[in-house]
Design a protein around this nucleic acid. Sequence first.
RNA 1: GCGCCCGUGGCGCAAUUGGAUAGCGCAUCUGAUUCCGAAUCAGAAGGUUGUGGGUUCGAUUCCCGUCGGGCGCGCCA
Length: 552
Amino acid sequence: MNDISAKIVSALKGVLKETYDLDAEAGILNIEIPKDPKMGDYSSTCAMRLAKTLHQNPKMIAETVAEGLKGKLPEAETIEIAGPGFINFRMKKSALASVINTILDAGDSYGRNNTGEGKRILVEWVSANPTGDLHCGHARNAAWGDSICRLLEASGYDVLREYYVNDAGNQIVMLGESLIARYFEYFGKEYPLPADGYHGQDVKDIAIGLAKQDGDKWLTADSKERLEYFMTEGKERELQKIDADLKLYGVLIESWVHETLFYENNRARINACLDRMNELNLTYEKDGALWFRSTEYGDDKDRVLVKSDGTLSYMTPDIANHVYKVERGYTHLVDLWGADHHSYVTRMKAALKALGYPEGTLEVDLIQMVRMVDDGVEVKMSKRTGNAITIRELCEDVGVDAARWFFVSKDVATHMDFDMKLARSRSNDNPVYYAQYAYTRMFNILHKEGTPEFRREADYDLLNEEHETEMLKLIAEFPKIVAESAKNRTPNRVCNFCQQLSREFHSYYNSCRVSDPENPELTNQRLGLVSAVMVTMKNALDLIGVSAPEKM
RNA sequence: GCGCCCGUGGCGCAAUUGGAUAGCGCAUCUGAUUCCGAAUCAGAAGGUUGUGGGUUCGAUUCCCGUCGGGCGCGCCA
């Protein structure tokens, strides 16, 4: 909500109270920008929304409300009724332009809002097994999650960015065995490489690194001790690479929670969960295994917690993981999982519900599959390594900005083809550059030799072009867009916003000259507008992890 | 078979969360640089929102059916 629409809302609220003795809720008073600017700058649908409760024709309500608004909204130039009961407001130019100073005062923090204040939210994402490099399937997850965190932070939430490291399962044993095999190979010795082990070049490289660092002492070492060592080293080195690749990709993780944490002290945290579940009569024994009665909480079958051989199913430590999040004071949990794990959502929600946490504690965004396509052909493997294309390769190939824009601009609920040829192209086909080019154009205007220095004004009354009005309305919407994108976790809307603002600006640039020596007054006001648009654009791009270049 | 997700111009995506004549890019056609960078702009053409019903002032959006595509239905992780 910006200053202007806030004023409209409060005026409407007052009138509804006076004439109908009605305390209208926020949803009813929602202010919109009409698609067609001819309708007005802002519009309210409250008359239509109230038709039922007031038992009146929406058009009549609209007329009554418009009548009541007379003299109460000095910022409005005209208030008109249209269609089935829209109330359309055309604002005075100076009222719309007041947002310029608001933005220039706020600077980097323009767009920040307090809609999430007091809410503690833990976002867990990426969470790939530390057994290999992150590939482009993870890249969609990583970009989306990071943008969600940026949006939540900008909206005042207390956010923790977390990565869950699956380092307790059999896959780490396989990693250790695979490394040992490659280590032996380096010294020309035989050691069986497990069939379901890791055969890629990346694992080989780690083994070679260890061989160079430690020499051949592990060839003859105690086998148990050796496996322990290669597992730990392998995991650590894989995690370092993952961390480095995420940083390269502009993704920040603050907290790494290892699955092994829950196994510490004889499974202390896991057993505490299991004890709680037993006490609540949520479990039973069958065929030598311990089961969770998840069907009583909406699942289609009961799930095994402790297998008949005494080891734990994947879910069990993960329940402890989620309990641990809540224990640290996070009341809202968000997980980003691959869509192939969708059945797991019901299971985990069931567990949390059964343990007594309120409904809605956990929300899961499922990320649909990505196909990498280059020039119309699906690319399954990287030519260089024989494995899936890694995030690092993707960044080197198409650039961080293009990669992140492409992944964030499409709703993760839809299947996606990532067009590498398009992402790579430095041409007008590529939507990233459209937005970035708008930014460099603005920068150029302001920093061109001979452009006078902008002086802040009390009133910007000369900005009468239609494009100017449209841009003012758009940049005024930005904090609302940030707030809603954070709440709904839809960073793709920020991409749309960047596109829209760029389009408006490019169009303006071609129809009006900003810097006009003949008219210093108008020039100064336009410089103010361009500065404000520039601040907004930079902040918007930052939310999706895309840079705002001054030169291209 | 059951469950979850997705169907919007030729292609890729939007649509202010139920609002007005469904928008944008690519591709196609026509134009625009003596002037802040043409990685740009202006215009034309292109649609029964997969399909059939329902809910209401109003549906791309919500509900039910149906068709098509993807994914999942382990004491794997």
